[in-house]
């Protein structure tokens, strides 16, 4: 027994590199050999889906890309699933970016959509691109879009784009969707544009950001929330198009299980060690 406890205590002070290896394997193995894990959509994801489904065809939806390569695995699958739903429902998509990287993310997402759907630029969607200024840009969109954006990402004059006719400020949109990984993001859209002008909005954000957005969701200022990669996987399921996030759910599940196992094991060794110290 003493020998077993000695081994346990020794394992308790295991070098963190072993932990790194096990976490790495727990992510890598399910990615190499995919495992199909059933996904259940949470009420919040369902609320987002219902809000979009409730929009009439040709409704105008402003989608803001506020993420970059570091958070791409979490948010980009949401973007693709969302855009699929928007285009399949015949909605008009207007894209902006509050982050400079967001411009590339939106270009990438629209590139994918163009290969899947028969879309015409300027009629089905328009990409207004990035403007610096954080919340001031959101406030600018809330007040006067043609002043803020004179050209789009392709260098086309806004006035020459058919679907920009009649678009003056945020009130001209039927829905706003923020794909957000931090500041500026969802919070700024609620505070400076959607809540003051009563425009319904929803969000897809990183797991870490949920804490700061959830009060707005609970109050109904944000219609549901797609929370991190699980939220993306749930949305892929809801739009009936399993993609990257669904494939990565097994990896995330196993990584979480490994971390939980380490926490439990760490506590067992902690108690064993403490009991031994008390005896001494």
């Amino acid at each position: 027994m003493k020998k077993f406890i000695d081994i346990l205590i020794k394992l308790g002070s295991v070098d963190r590199r072993y932990i790194f290896v096990l976490v790495g394997l727990s992510v890598l193995i399910p990615l190499i050999w995919p495992i199909n894990i059933p996904i259940r959509a949470t009420q919040q994801s369902q609320n987002v889906f219902n809000a979009i489904e409730g929009l009439a065809p040709n409704s105008k939806v402003l989608v803001s890309f506020e993420y970059g390569p570091s958070t791409k695995p979490e948010i980009h699958p949401m973007s693709l699933a969302l855009l699929r739903q928007l285009f399949e429902n015949g909605l008009k998509v207007y894209a902006t970016a509050l982050w400079p990287d967001g411009l590339f993310m939106s270009a990438d997402a629209f590139g994918t959509m163009e290969s899947e759907y028969d879309l015409e630029y300027g009629v089905d969607y328009v990409n207004l691109g990035f403007r610096p200024g954080n919340e001031a840009v959101v406030k600018g969109i809330a007040a006067d879009i043609p002043t803020l954006y004179t050209t789009d990402t392709r260098g086309i004059q806004i006035t020459a784009i058919p679907m920009m006719k009649g678009i003056h400020d945020v009130k001209d949109f039927d829905f706003v969707f923020s794909l957000s990984a931090g500041y500026p993001g969802t919070k700024e859209w609620v505070q400076y544009a959607c809540d003051p002008h009563n425009v319904p909005m929803s969000t897809g954000c990183t797991s870490i950001q949920v804490t700061e957005v959830i009060p707005y969701v609970e109050h109904g200022q944000v219609k549901g929330i797609l929370a991190g990669m699980p939220g993306a996987a749930e949305y892929e399921k809801l739009v009936n198009h399993p993609g990257l996030a669904t494939g990565m759910m097994a990896a995330q599940s196993f990584a979480h299980l490994v971390i939980v196992a380490f926490i439990i094991f760490g506590n067992i060794t902690y108690f064993v060690q403490r009991k031994r110290d008390q005896k001494k």
Binding site: I37, P38, I39, R40, P230, A233, M249, S253, H256
Partner: peptide, 11 residues
Amino acid sequence: LMLGRVPVGQM
């Protein structure tokens, strides 16, 4: 949270 957020938690 770690288990509840991922599908394996549902299992």
